[in-house]
Design a protein around this nucleic acid. Structure first.
Lengths: 301, 301
DNA sequence: AGTTTTAATAAGATTAACTTATGATAACAA
DNA sequence: TTGTTATCATAAGTTAATCTTATTAAAACT
C-alpha cells in the first residue's frame, strides 16, 4: 500500500501519454495493470489524479501538482545512480591519503600529477601526519589509505609493503668521506652532524641507532627541514643522515654524495595501510598502483 | 530488478541505524529481507553500499553519495503527498473562474472576499470574457468553472442555473416613469435611451427585443460602462436598460428607480458551467456554494 | 445504429518480497 | 585460547503484491 515505484512510473507514463492504454504499451504492461496502479495511488492520496474522459485522460489539479514532485523524485534518483556510476569509472569521487611530510614532499607530487591528469574528476586530499597518527586516521576512516613507515600494529588495519625506506648519510662531494665506497656508524660519530629536530620520526630512529651502538655523535645543528640540511651539508657544515627518497635531485646532479650506512635488514619499510574490512576504494587502489609503478622506476642507491 | 521503494527504505534505515538487524526491527521486517534488499540494490548499482565489519556496517563512498540522493528523493515524494493533502483541505490549490465583466464587477467581489478569508491558501483567478468565450475556456480546461448567461450549447459542458438574469429599465427617481409601477416596451421607445455599446451581450439582447417588438428606440448615447450609464440616468440624460444585479447600491439608496420590463419567462438565466466529466474541483464546488448562498440573500426587484 | 476505442473489474497466474531456518564470521568474555 | 553472543549471508518455502487474461461498460467516431 506504500507508494511503489511501479505505481509512480505508471502515473508518470499516463500523464505523459494522456492515456492508460498507451502508458501500458510504453511500459510493456497491460492496461489493467496501469488502471490498478493509478487506482491504488489515488486511494492512497485520497484524490483523483486523472479525469477519465473517453478518448484521453487529463491530469486533475492534484495530479498536476503530484506529477511535479514525482518527476523531480525520479530525476533525483537518476542523479544518484549517475553519481555512483561516475564513481566506478573515476569521473567523480574523492580520495584522502594520510602520510608523512617527507613522503608527501618527496614521493607523492609526481604520482599526484599523473593521477590527477588521468582522473581529473577525483578530488584528492593529502593529510600530513606522523605515521602513528596517519594510522589512527585510517582506522577512524578519516582517510582512505595511509602511506606510513611500518610496522603499524593495529588489528583493524591491513598493511602492504611499498618500498624499503632507507636512511643514508650525505656529505658534500668534496668531503673526505665522499671518496669512501662504504662507511660505518663510527665514521658518522667522527664527523660534525646536522640532524633533524627531536620529535621527528627519522630523528628518533637515528638516536636509537646511535644509542644501540653506544656512540656519541657530534650534533652541531638540529633543523626542522631536510631541504635546509641538504643545503648546509653542501656548504660543508657537516654530514647528515636523511631518507634516501629525499635525495633524488642531488644524486642525479651530483651535488651531494649519498653513503650507505645501514644494511637492508636494518632499514624500515614504507608501506600502505587501509581498513582491514572496509575495502579501500577503486580510486585508492589505482593510486597505490600508480605509486608502485613510480617507485619501481626510481633508482636505488 | 528496477529499484523498488522497499529497497530504498531498507537502504536508508541501514544507513541510519548502522546495522542490518536494527534496520529490520525499525521497519518491522526480518534481517534477511534487509540483506536481500541491500544486495539487490548493490547489484543494480554495481557498487557496494556498506562495508560489513562485524558490529556495525558503514556506508562506503558510493553509499554516502547515494544516500544523499535517496533522502532527497523521499523528501520530494513526501512533499508531493503533503501538497495533495493540502489540496483536500483547501490550504492550497488554485481556482480559475471565467465570467463576464458585469458578473465579475457586481456579484463576485463579496463572494471572493468571503472565500479568500476562509481559504487564504487557494489562489483564485478571474478571467473576464463574454459568455461564449468563457464557455470555450472552460471546455478547454483553461478555467475550472464559468459563470455565464445560459443557454450554452456545448455537449462537453454541464450547466447549472444560478439566478434569473433580469434586465430592468432605470430612470432617475424624479423621472416621470418613476411613478409607474410597471412599464412596457412601448414606454421605453417613447423616451431618450442610453444603451451599452454594440457588441455587448446585453445590448445584443436588447436590440433583438426591440426588433421583435417592431419598435424603434431613441438611442441618444451608447456607452461602454454600466457605471457611466447609471450616473447619466441619475442626471436625467434619459433612461436605460441594465442588468438588475448592477443596481444593488442604487436601489438601496434610492438614487435610481428600477422598473420591470420583462416577464420572468423573458429573462435569461445566469448559470455555472463546468466540464461534463472533468469533475470540478473542491475549491470550485465550495466557491459555487458560497455564490448560491450570497445570491439567495440578495433582494429581488 | 454499429464499430471502435478506452477504461474498469474480476479471477487466475506470475513474480517479487518476505519469513523461517540455518550457517559463517567476527567481536566479546571468561 | 575457547565458548558465547551478535551480526550478516544464504537457501528454501511462504506470503503478498502485481501482472495478465477475459470480460464488461461506456463513450466517441463512422
Amino acid at each position: 500500500m506504500i507508494t511503489s515505484m511501479e505505481q509512480l512510473t505508471a502515473f508518470r507514463a499516463v500523464a505523459e501519454t494522456g492515456s492508460f492504454t498507451r502508458a501500458a504499451e510504453k511500459l510493456f504492461r497491460t492496461q489493467p495493470a496501469i488502471s490498478q496502479a493509478i487506482r491504488s495511488l489515488e486511494e492512497e492520496l485520497g484524490e483523483l489524479l486523472f479525469t477519465r474522459e473517453g478518448r484521453q485522460s487529463r491530469l486533475t489539479q492534484a495530479g498536476r501538482i503530484f506529477l511535479i514532485h514525482v518527476e523531480e523524485m525520479f530525476e533525483t534518483l537518476e542523479q544518484g545512480r549517475d553519481r555512483v556510476a561516475a564513481l566506478k569509472d573515476l569521473t567523480a569521487g574523492e580520495l584522502t591519503i594520510s602520510t608523512s611530510d617527507t613522503t608527501a614532499y618527496y614521493i607523492l607530487p609526481d604520482v599526484l600529477k599523473r593521477f590527477r591528469d588521468q582522473y581529473p574528476g577525483v578530488d584528492v586530499r593529502i593529510q600530513c601526519k606522523p605515521s602513528p597518527e596517519s594510522a589512527a586516521q585510517v582506522a577512524a576512516r578519516e582517510a582512505d589509505v595511509g602511506i606510513v613507515t611500518l610496522p603499524i600494529e593495529n588489528p583493524k588495519l591491513a598493511c602492504e609493503d611499498l618500498i624499503l625506506r632507507e636512511d643514508v648519510a650525505i656529505c658534500a662531494p668534496t668531503h673526505e668521506l665522499a671518496k669512501r665506497r662504504k662507511i660505518v656508524f663510527q665514521d658518522l660519530a667522527a664527523h660534525p652532524l646536522l640532524l633533524l629536530d627531536h620529535g621527528s620520526n627519522t630523528r628518533t630512529y637515528i638516536d636509537r641507532r646511535f644509542r644501540d651502538a653506544s656512540l656519541k655523535p657530534q650534533i652541531i645543528m638540529e633543523l626542522g627541514s631536510i631541504e635546509v640540511i641538504k643545503k648546509l651539508v653542501q656548504l660543508q657544515f657537516g654530514i647528515s643522515i636523511v631518507p634516501l627518497i629525499a635525495l633524488q635531485t642531488e644524486i642525479e646532479q651530483g651535488t651531494l654524495k649519498a653513503l650507505r650506512v645501514f644494511k637492508k635488514s636494518e632499514c624500515r619499510t614504507l608501506g600502505i595501510i587501509y581498513p582491514e574490512r572496509g575495502i579501500h576504494s577503486l580510486a585508492a587502489r589505482i593510486f597505490i598502483e600508480m605509486l608502485r609503478n613510480y617507485l619501481d622506476g626510481k633508482a636505488r642507491l
